[in-house]
Structure formats: structure tokens, C-alpha cells
């Protein structure tokens, strides 16, 4: 038994029965048209839906507050908070540096070269003033 040959012959036989009654062809054409309509809806749906959502939100003051004002206010508050936190960090770091120099002076741990540095002496004068 040669499977491909039998398969091919039966395929030809089945192909001969593809001429369908007019009513069946009409129903298949209607089904096809219906399916294509659904594809059309799907293609245009995302843009329309987005436009619809935006329009709905902007037309209602409550929606304006929830979807525009509130998020923007939260964003601004977050930026201000971060800025303040960074400022505080910078201040603490500067204080720590001064404490380190002062304690070095008090303990006489400062290297002798520091006293020969004009900038350092100028800084000491400014600090004492």
C-alpha cells in the first residue's frame, strides 16, 4: 500500500465534492462577512476606546481631580520631599567633616603640614571669627 498515492487520490476525490449548493455557499459568505465585520471592530476599537476614556475623564471635574490634579500633586510633593532629604544629607555630611577636623586639632592628630598650609590657616581664621 502506497500511502501518499492513496492519500493523493482521495484528495482529488474529495476536491470533486467541493461544489456546494447555492444556499450553503451563501451562508458561508454571510459567515465570512460577519467575521470580517468583527475584525473591523477590533481594529478600530483601541483608538476609539482610548479617545472615549480620555474624553470621559476630562469632561467630569471629579475625574479631573482623580486622574490629573491628584497625580501631579503627589509627584510635586515627592520631588520636594526628595530635595529636602538630599539637603539634610548634605548638611549632616558637612557637619561631620568639621567635627572630624576639630577633633583632630584638639587631639593634635593633625599632621604638621596642615599648619603650613595657607588655606588651612585662612580657614582657621575664618572659623574663629
Amino acid at each position: 500500500m502506497n500511502e501518499p498515492i492513496i492519500g493523493r487520490k482521495i484528495k482529488h476525490a474529495l476536491d470533486e465534492r467541493l461544489s456546494l449548493p447555492a444556499e450553503t455557499r451563501a451562508r458561508l459568505a454571510a459567515a465570512r462577512a460577519h467575521a470580517l465585520e468583527r475584525q473591523q471592530v477590533r481594529e478600530s476599537l483601541p483608538a476609539l476606546a482610548f479617545a472615549g476614556r480620555v474624553g470621559m475623564r476630562l469632561s467630569d471635574p471629579t475625574q479631573w481631580f482623580r486622574h490629573v490634579i491628584l497625580p501631579v500633586a503627589l509627584l510635586v510633593a515627592a520631588i520636594i520631599g526628595m530635595e529636602q532629604w538630599q539637603e539634610r544629607q548634605r548638611g549632616a555630611q558637612a557637619t561631620a567633616e568639621i567635627v572630624e577636623v576639630d577633633s583632630g586639632l584638639l587631639k593634635s592628630d593633625l599632621p604638621i603640614d596642615a599648619y603650613l598650609d595657607r588655606d588651612f590657616l585662612a580657614w582657621l581664621k575664618r572659623s574663629s571669627d
Binding site: 450553503t24 458561508l28 459567515a31 465570512r32 467575521a35 468583527r38 475584525q39 477590533r42 481594529e43
Partner: peptide, 22 residues
């Protein structure tokens, strides 16, 4: 069954167009 076969094909066409039409 003729009617059932048509329904099956219509169902398949719809599914293809809706989910994989693009």
C-alpha cells in the same frame, strides 16, 4: 450535519477574525 457544520465553520471564522485577524 449540514447546519451544525455551518455553525462550526462560522464559529471558527469568528474566532480567527476576532483573535488572530491581524
Amino acid at each position: 450535519d449540514d447546519a451544525a457544520a455551518l455553525d462550526v465553520v462560522q464559529d471558527a471564522m469568528l474566532r480567527l477574525a476576532e483573535k488572530y485577524g491581524a
